[in-house]
Nucleic acid binder design. Structure first.
Lengths: 236, 236
DNA sequence: AACGCGCGCCAACCTGTGTTAGTTTGCCGA
DNA sequence: TCGGCAAACTAACACAGGTTGGCGCGCGTT
């Protein structure tokens, strides 16, 4: 069984067995468990390491002084929290666990070592970086110009592909272990309206969300509803 | 007189005269003029080069099939359009001129040459990259969780600092050569509401926007109104 | 001087989404 | 088995922001 991390990198490049071993080695160091709703990395720190999500969902978020919260990225198993941590930038946000999470703490040196002499790994990591920034752009466009139902449909489509590529989706059924307030903070809405919109998607026969699992009943319909074009997720 | 590009890099690192010369050299190759409202780089292309904005304002934007447009980033003089172009990723968006623009077309090889043996330049370029991604995160938070007036105030504060660092602001008076529909596309609103909000900022004594120039009358007040904390723009 | 036109500006009206305040469901621990 | 509690869900109402349509100014063109 391959790990989500290896599977995601293998989407971009062909890996030799030793490449896979090197990546898996990264994931075995400094493994840590974090409870749901706890911070993995608080705001204002300047960490000289990054986290690889092994299990569970996390998010990158910005807290507001008055209690509002904006989730600016969802981090799934196989995602690297901050590949540029070696730059020692002070964090302008926080990384929090949405569910109980298992992470590996990785130093820049370890990444450097894994990359050395393994161009496939370097190429694969770069493509992941590019895909991540493309997702950021798409989120800005989504919150800025898509309606509530388009946004939710678009997010579900994005997660469907990301989870499929990580080997975590069962066809069109995906884990979706986030609360409605979490979705609201990610999509710039309220949980009440997320609930309404979810109902609309359900009665429209597009998706069903129950027991922390999302079942897509009509993938083409969902993509159309969310104006979803998967091109942005595919770097070559 | 130093160019905006050099001034911005010098905000992060101390440059030797030869470093400055190397950066200026980049800006002198393949200079091109683009009329306002024209694309500098169309969507779906896979350019093996990047553009340095020498003069004028541009934007990174996503067009929607039904005519909506989301501006996901503003590009000011001294900004590098896409430092990762050497990865040959297919563009999932377009880069368009908001005003008449002068750009230099730069190849990855030229950047590599400028960086070779000049660690200060490499460090400076990296910090610019980090600042850019921090701006992306801030925009997601802004469109997701800030009200109309907070968003506009926040954007003006961001542009005030970016233009100051590029040497293009005259104290608290900045060039602001964009139309209200442009601001609307960048902030996820309509031009009508931008107009209302502008009026509110004006009658509140915070800013005046006239003749393509913005005058900030009360910087502290504006920052408070926009919940603006400049920390995210400062990488060290 | 006259025209065209993009842009700023405004008023009236409309609606998508937020707010408030619940009830119901489902799960976990005692 | 029974609370206790977080999350899902809903209804009624409120309002921020969208829509439509119109006026006028400034400026470039003829």
């Amino acid at each position: 069984m391959e790990t989500p991390f290896v599977r995601k990198i293998e989407r971009h490049v062909r890996l030799a067995p030793e490449d896979r071993a090197a990546l898996d080695g990264l994931a075995r160091q400094h493994v840590r468990h974090v409870a749901g709703r706890q911070d993995i990395e608080g705001p204002h720190t300047a960490p000289y390491h990054t986290h690889l999500i092994l299990d569970g969902w996390a998010c990158r978020y910005k807290p507001f002084p008055d209690g509002r919260r904006a989730i600016v990225a969802l981090l799934l198993p196989g995602d690297l929290c901050d590949p540029f941590a070696f730059r020692r930038a002070r964090m302008d946000h926080a990384v929090g666990a949405l569910t109980p999470v298992t992470v590996a703490r990785i130093t820049p040196e370890q990444i450097g070592e894994a990359v050395r002499g393994r161009p496939a790994i370097e190429e694969g990591l770069w493509r992941e970086v590019l895909a991540t920034t493309a997702i950021h752009r798409e989120w800005i466009a989504s919150v800025g110009r898509r309606s509530a139902i388009e946004r939710l449909a678009h997010l579900f489509c994005e997660l469907h592909l990301r989870l499929t590529w990580a080997g975590l989706a069962d066809g069109t059924t995906l884990p979706m272990p986030v609360t409605q307030p979490d979705l609201a903070d990610a999509l710039g809405q309220t949980s009440v309206h997320i609930n309404r919109t979810l109902k609309e998607l359900r009665t429209g026969g597009l998706v069903v969300l129950r027991n922390r699992r999302l079942t897509i009943r009509d993938l083409d319909g969902l993509r159309e509803r969310g104006l979803f074009d998967p091109a942005y997720l595919q770097p070559p």
